[in-house]
Lab assay of single mutants.
Amino acid sequence: TDVTFHVNGRNLHLKGADEELLRRIEELIRRGADIEELEKAVKEWEK
């Protein structure tokens, strides 16, 4: 799945995201995470 999140005026584009990653990103956004936290979560998922 390709999806782009718009967070605090910045874009986080995910290519090939699975349901697990999407749920994790949505949860972080609900908690008020900043873009750096979201990018870190994506990097951890990519490993």
Score class of each variant (00 low, 15 high):
27 E>L: 13
35 I>R: 01
23 R>A: 11
27 E>D: 14
20 E>T: 12
28 L>K: 06
36 E>A: 08
24 R>E: 10
30 R>M: 12
16 G>M: 07
46 E>Y: 14
14 L>K: 00
4 T>L: 05
6 H>C: 15
37 E>Y: 10
45 W>H: 11
5 F>P: 01
8 N>P: 01
21 L>C: 05
3 V>N: 03
1 T>V: 15
11 N>V: 15
31 R>G: 15
9 G>N: 05
47 K>M: 13
30 R>K: 10
22 L>F: 04
20 E>F: 13
35 I>W: 12
14 L>Q: 00
4 T>K: 04
14 L>T: 01
43 K>H: 13
4 T>I: 14
3 V>A: 07
17 A>N: 03
31 R>K: 12
2 D>F: 05
6 H>S: 09
40 K>E: 15
34 D>N: 09
5 F>Y: 11
16 G>L: 06
3 V>P: 03
7 V>A: 03
47 K>I: 13
21 L>R: 01
30 R>Y: 11
42 V>M: 06
38 L>R: 00
11 N>A: 14
29 I>A: 04
22 L>H: 03
9 G>D: 09
40 K>I: 14
32 G>W: 03
43 K>C: 09
4 T>M: 06
41 A>W: 08
24 R>P: 00
47 K>Q: 12
30 R>D: 11
33 A>L: 08
5 F>E: 02
9 G>P: 00
32 G>E: 05
42 V>H: 02
13 H>K: 05
6 H>K: 08
33 A>T: 06
6 H>A: 05
8 N>V: 01
27 E>R: 09
39 E>L: 14
26 E>I: 14
6 H>P: 03
45 W>I: 04
47 K>D: 13
42 V>S: 03
1 T>M: 14
18 D>S: 15
19 E>C: 05
36 E>Q: 07
13 H>Y: 12
22 L>D: 00
25 I>P: 00
38 L>G: 00
2 D>Q: 04
9 G>I: 03
43 K>P: 02
15 K>W: 06
29 I>H: 04
24 R>V: 09
32 G>C: 06
38 L>I: 06
25 I>S: 00
23 R>I: 08
3 V>E: 03
27 E>Y: 13
2 D>N: 06
30 R>L: 12
36 E>M: 06
4 T>H: 07
41 A>C: 07
35 I>D: 03
19 E>W: 11
23 R>K: 14
35 I>Y: 15
10 R>A: 15
34 D>I: 08
4 T>Y: 06
18 D>L: 02
33 A>D: 04
2 D>L: 07
46 E>L: 10
15 K>R: 08
35 I>G: 02
39 E>A: 06
31 R>H: 14
14 L>I: 15
35 I>F: 15
27 E>M: 12
12 L>T: 00
44 E>V: 09
39 E>S: 06
19 E>S: 11
27 E>H: 10
